[in-house]
Amino acid sequence: MNAIAEKVKLFDCRDAFTETLEALATEDTNVVAVCNDSVGSSKLTGFRDRFPERLINVGIAEQTLVGVGAGLANGGKIPFVCGAACFLTGRSLEQIKADVAYSNTNVKLIGISSGMAYGELGPTHHSTEDFAWLRAIPNIAVVAPCDNVETAAAVAFAAAFEGPIFLRLSRVGVPQLLPDGHTFELGKANLLRDGSDVTLIANGTLTHRALKAAELLAAKGIEARVLNMASVRPIDEQAIIKAAKETGAILTCEEHTIFGGLGSAVAEVVVDHAPVPMKRLGVPGTFPPTGSANFLLDEFGMSPDGIATTATALVQRKS
């Protein structure tokens, strides 16, 4: 199965983001893009060429980047505020809290190259805390699409959604997992594969890895359910409770620290409603060594083999 998967076309989800954004901007003159000198890395060159006045580049100034977004929203615009996720969230966290979430402004934060997408550039450029930081702030939706189709759907959703939302995008290639025409629903998980022995919950770049792991597990006679949980907040409590009750064990996988992210969010639901054995895979609370995103995910036990191995051990913990 791995050999076949290697030949599958991989998508840079930034392309789906900008194609959708340009289509939205064509329909609605209130759609604007705001960036921090990140025209190229946010793939906004096409947007700039088509809508030069509607691309606002504040320069390398993330606090002003987010503040300007809030002001544009106050003036009736629908700002897509784009920047490398590590700087967008880390450098301007207080602006996200006060100007966007607490002020309830209609700002769309687009975290580009999230997780460990910048790989070898090192932990300064990794964004493996953003779920935790933003989940701790009230009134902002947090979404990590798993592929090109879900990215496009989530961007369209964000434009129509009234209120603060953070979309966490990668630049690392992923295969298409969801069907063309897929509609994004905030707070709803997608059942990608059913199973009764264990549930793998993942989002972003981990969803396709979890699906591959499920294939490896099936070969060993373990039927794994796979839930794509793009929406970290609000989170699909019902799908998590159902998975806990029906499969008896949950393994989460994320390109994020295991402290405060998807795994923590799932664990909070499990603890409150349906305690079952769980394991959280992610960045284990250390600054990663040098390596590409895919290398580091493997390194931290999130290769399909690694996920399958952890899932197998988890199944053995079920009483």
Binding site: V68, L72, A73, N74, D99, S103, T105
Partner: peptide, 19 residues
């Protein structure tokens, strides 16, 4: 806009003026 932490109002005002 909700203010309190200092240094927030001017960036937001720049966004308003841009709009």
């Amino acid at each position: 806009t909700n203010t309190g932490p200092l240094g927030h109002g001017l960036p937001v005002a720049v966004g308003m003026a841009l709009a």
